[in-house]
Design a protein around this nucleic acid. Structure first.
Lengths: 345, 345
DNA sequence: CTGAAAGCGCTAACAG
DNA sequence: CTGTTAGCGCTTTCAG
């Protein structure tokens, strides 16, 4: 065995009896090369199993063909779907994905960002953690590459973003409930200090109002965080003398608590109460009939995010300013058997 | 603004009024440097926000500080937990993780492997897809870096592996059932052409035998793949004149089908039937009482896998042969309320 | 159309 | 102890 490591462009050149420059041109399709030489080079590269050394390529060309993916919480099924969709599309475009999970820990997000910044990736997708850390927006802004925010949009961070119309998400659920005759609707939601939760609740409210209904504010349970929070809230509202006939859950996490609460109360859907939630729980199909869900178009979100990054990458070459538009896609209501007409009680 | 790009070692050298070699030594802790110079260099690097260019570093040193993670199916909650555990540990050791999802598609695994091979990562974790593709073992063996197989072990692929004792997993479940008085035990399992499923069933069988019981082979439903397969199998066995009092599910996927089947049959656990399954479903807590589960020690698996890779990386420097031992860890039975004593029917 | 050579940023040998 | 220098493998002018 002659050489220990992987074949270099030099060896290809020697085998094809041309210069390294020529090999590079052939393999990159730059410059003009005669057919015979092209063939010789391609054969030589093929027979040696040559692949260009990424570090050497990057060092010259300045790009890395890698994209960073900074996820607030991998165990959130919705974020995971986003990760899957992005990985697939990035791969198809010839990019590799560097994955960082923040696990909803601000400190971890900070460290991940530092690691990412040192990596010289060509672009970054970020789903920010819920809780901020000091200097976060500044740190994100200082990234020397295109960045796109997904789902959660940071206040004051002027970078492109891709998310759904969260007001519409609330509206779809509310209208569905109303169409089924529900009037007493409860809502479980996170802290409305954050845009997402606020918009979702706004959607509920405006749709109720548009139908001439007023939202019973005592049935709006906010600032819920943990699964147990949501379960407790479920206990609370369903235990009142005049309980709601329908419950809305504002995210994946709270839905788990809602289901847990209902299960412990031995209430069944939709007979005892109708529920509609935001974000698909992939395994909810095991519940007979499934759960009526406002689903986000993960594929389209990933497409838009990747387009934003790649457009920015191309744009940066001609010195264009970083685009910072907000892409807003529409969610979709999937009606399943957790919701039914009111009044069988 | 003077320079457009990120600061280089040269600029640090100029600012600190030393040579680039000295800067390199200070920053890498190699060679011996006087305290004053060290301080000057560190300050200069600090104030410029200098971070070494990874491509340049890699080109010289030959390593990339990146690890590849080739996952059969990201949407499998168990694999996802493994990914989370590995990412966390790799990050802590200063490695970045390149993620590739095969989505159980052999072709995608093949393409991912090619991409990975071209990336010159320092090591690879692989959870192979269930179905093979022509030349798979050869392709994996040709990787020019340490590799470790996780969970699924490829027949004929002589590389280090980390997995649990799958026979023990079957034994734990069987013994638990038997202790509760169950005698008619059904099992849902994948194709026993694969080691994992085979070992799990073996564990069931030997434990039954050790307790003087014989396994009713008509209650062993093999070659199940989809969720609907498992649901149909559940319908089948529970619909017999003499149905089982307990059901075992061999993996995450089949558990979903089992739950779906039971839900549609309106059978409840553990009153109508006890169930015990392999692999945690993170969201199963919403089912009142949870599901009795044989859990795999994800953290320990990740630790072992990383140690194997890093050990191999260190080893390869002194020219040691690639270690190819199989690390086998023990699973753990978490008893919850889906199992109960037999005979309340 | 093809070859020669510079140099991306860094590390490691070798001089001093 | 510190500086100088030769490349790592590749792309890209610039000559021919």
């Amino acid at each position: 065995m002659a050489s220990g490591g992987a074949p270099t462009i030099k060896e290809v050149a020697k085998l094809a009896d041309v210069s390294v420059g020529t090999v590079s041109k052939v393999l990159n399709g730059t410059g003009s090369i005669s057919a015979v030489v092209r063939k010789r080079v391609e054969d030589a590269a093929q027979s040696l199993g040559y692949a260009p050394h990424p570090s050497a390529r990057s060092l010259r060309s300045g790009d890395t063909k890698m994209l960073g993916l900074l996820v607030a919480d991998l165990s959130n099924p919705f974020f995971l779907q986003l990760v899957e969709a992005i990985e697939q599309r990035a791969s198809a475009k010839g990019y590799s994905v560097l994955l960082y999970n923040s696990n909803e820990e601000p400190l971890r997000e900070k460290r991940n960002l530092q690691a990412l910044a040192a990596q010289r990736v060509d672009g970054v997708f970020v789903i920010p953690t819920f809780d901020p850390w000091p200097g976060r927006v500044v740190a994100f802004s200082a990234l020397p590459c295109p960045i796109v925010q997904l789902d959660r949009i940071l206040e004051g961070f002027d970078a492109p973003s891709v998310a759904i119309d969260n007001r519409m998400a609330g509206r779809l659920a509310a209208q569905h409930f109303i169409d089924l005759g529900h009037r007493r609707i409860a809502a479980l939601t996170g802290s409305t200090e954050y845009q997402i939760a606020r918009h979702r609740v706004e959607g509920l409210r405006t749709t109720m109002a548009a139908n001439g209904l007023s939202f019973d504010e005592t049935l709006l349970v906010q600032k819920l965080h943990t699964i147990d929070d949501a379960a407790a809230a479920t206990f609370d509202v369903m235990g009142r003398k005049n309980p709601p006939t329908a419950i809305f859950s504002g995210n994946n996490h709270l839905t788990l608590g809602l289901l847990k609460g209902l299960s412990e109360l031995e209430l069944s859907m939709p007979d005892d109460v109708s529920i509609a939630v935001i974000d698909e729980l992939p395994w909810a199909g095991m519940l007979a009939g499934g759960i009526t869900t406002v689903v986000q178009p993960c594929g389209a979100l990933a497409d838009a995010a990747l387009a934003s990054i790649l457009g920015d990458i191309a744009g940066s070459k001609v010195g264009e300013p970083r685009t910072s538009g907000a892409t807003i896609l529409q969610p979709d209501l999937k009606v399943r058997r957790s919701t039914g007409p009111v009044g069988n009680r």
